[in-house]
Design a protein around this nucleic acid. Structure first.
Lengths: 142, 142
DNA sequence: CTAAACCATAGAGTATACTCTAAGGTCAAG
DNA sequence: CTTGACCTTAGAGTATACTCTATGGTTTAG
């Protein structure tokens, strides 16, 4: 199989050489070395980088991607393990969506309550909310 | 007005002394100093910390909170400026929600396609997707 | 053979929001 | 006056995912 250097792989993959070395430190990719110490990547390198890109797009961390790659390489890999990690990611996504929805709703409510004109912000409902918060409706005005 | 030390404010606010000093470095809060150099916080300190907490909950960064606090303190503050920053936050929240929805949908689709049993993951559609990606449906199998 | 282009390493810098450590000064009680 | 609690500063460490710098070795074209 053809062996390529880090610069070539970098160009082919669009992943910087620095990042390739970083991925190697994290154990995501393990190139062979030439006699002089140069990294030599095999044909699986592009496939691995593709895998990493896909997983990153789904908000897997590099740590998690490392786990998945290890699963992928292992003989004892089970789909169940992958499914479990995926389920966790779905839950995380749902929680974040929920949180962001709450934030969006609140910001929109505040926006509607705001005159939005050039008057002073001293009585701005947005700043007011940020100060007093949604938890304690009526704090003393200090 | 009563002046309190950093330890007292920390206990009253639930914000660590380290964090209070950090906020000061960022210019969010500016206590006076005693002759010996001790920080002395006025009655507005708790109000400011409350403001920071509220804004953080709405995903404003400390930098953005600093801007808002400056607006709040300024005579020329306009509600319009606050409204503009809030609108930006709403857009950001919407974008993140959209992205997470895509991710969630994809993960769920992959989960449904996965047998989820104890068989080998060599043909797992999830790993397969991560490798080949949603963009190029049929890459060479390396 | 030399110069350019490429590769290697270790370690620091980026961004965000803290958190902790070390070394030392201040304050209140007994 | 000493002890302990509290305060000060500068700077390093944490987490994530890179990115850059410095210094020096390798490879390839002319």
């Amino acid at each position: 199989m053809k062996k390529i250097t880090i610069g070539v792989l970098s160009k082919q993959s669009g992943v910087s050489a620095d990042t390739l070395r970083y991925y190697e430190r994290l154990g995501l990719i393990k190139p062979l070395r030439s006699a002089s110490g140069y990294r030599h990547y095999g044909s699986d390198a592009l496939r691995i980088l593709c895998f990493i890109r896909g997983a990153k797009a789904l908000h897997f961390t590099l740590q998690e991607i490392g786990d998945l790659l290890f699963l992928d390489a292992s003989d004892k890999t089970t789909c169940a393990a992958v499914l479990k990690k995926t389920a966790t990611k779905i839950r995380e996504a749902e929680e974040k969506i929920e949180e962001l929805h709450e934030i969006k709703k609140l910001l929109e409510k505040l926006t509607k309550a705001c005159p939005g004109d050039e008057t002073s912000a001293e009585a701005c409902p947005i700043l007011d909310h940020l100060c007093h918060g949604p938890s304690h409706k009526h704090a003393e005005h200090a």
